[in-house]
Amino acid sequence: MDIIVCMKWTPDTSEADLTVDKEGKDIRKDDLDFDMNDWDRFAIEEAVQLKEKVGGKVTAVAVAPEDAEGMLRECLARGADEAYQLWDDAFEGSDGYAVAAILAKFIKDRPHDLVLTGTLADDDCGGQIGGMVAAMLDIPGSTLVSKIQISDGKLTCHRELEGGLYESIEMDLPAVLSVATGLNEPRFVSVRAVRKVAALEIPTLELGDLGLEASAVGSDGSRIRIELMELPPEGEGAEIITGKAEEAAAKLAEILKEKGGIGS
């Protein structure tokens, strides 16, 4: 089975002091550390586990600049058989739609039984890629997939729903699945594991290699234009409740009731 996993290279904003850049259209990323999108970590793990069960080949792919090579190499260390980096200066400024178009073109040109990706990305939380890629390839897709089973060319997957429910979906292959976090336990990647795949080549495919037009990618190929990005204004009315635990709890309950946080 040929499995293609779409990976994203995202800035780690968890411990950083975020600032907006001069143009006011994006955050400043020069000081941020980039890493594999956490949701995609589960996607690549699922792909490798499926391969270990039913056999086949896992291809990792990312629309990302040169610096992201480390992430793709990590995918190889995690068990992917090959990895491709899709990058061209023309790709700069692509929105979800344009990135999906690049990925769809890449996928279309090679064998694919299953396309996996994370449901969301840690940075912009767009959640667009899976659905768009499925539509562009004209194959079925699903999001927030928490379990995948494959037998006799049929795919059964579970989707997480609200309130602890899940639905079970059966679909034909090929298909695009956007996975939820927690559907597996991603393996650990040691320094030695990365070193073992250090010699494998990770080809970079540019605009022409993919057979794409410049007008279909970058800001020209995008459908979303960011007008302004601002940090949220500092809130008012934060109150630190002091006193003994019982008193503090009583006070907190009172405030929540008063402000409509909980029912009365």
Partner: peptide
Amino acid sequence: LVDQGQVPQSLQ
């Protein structure tokens, strides 16, 4: 175990 990638999630 580390070489096999088998490390508890809490430590990863």
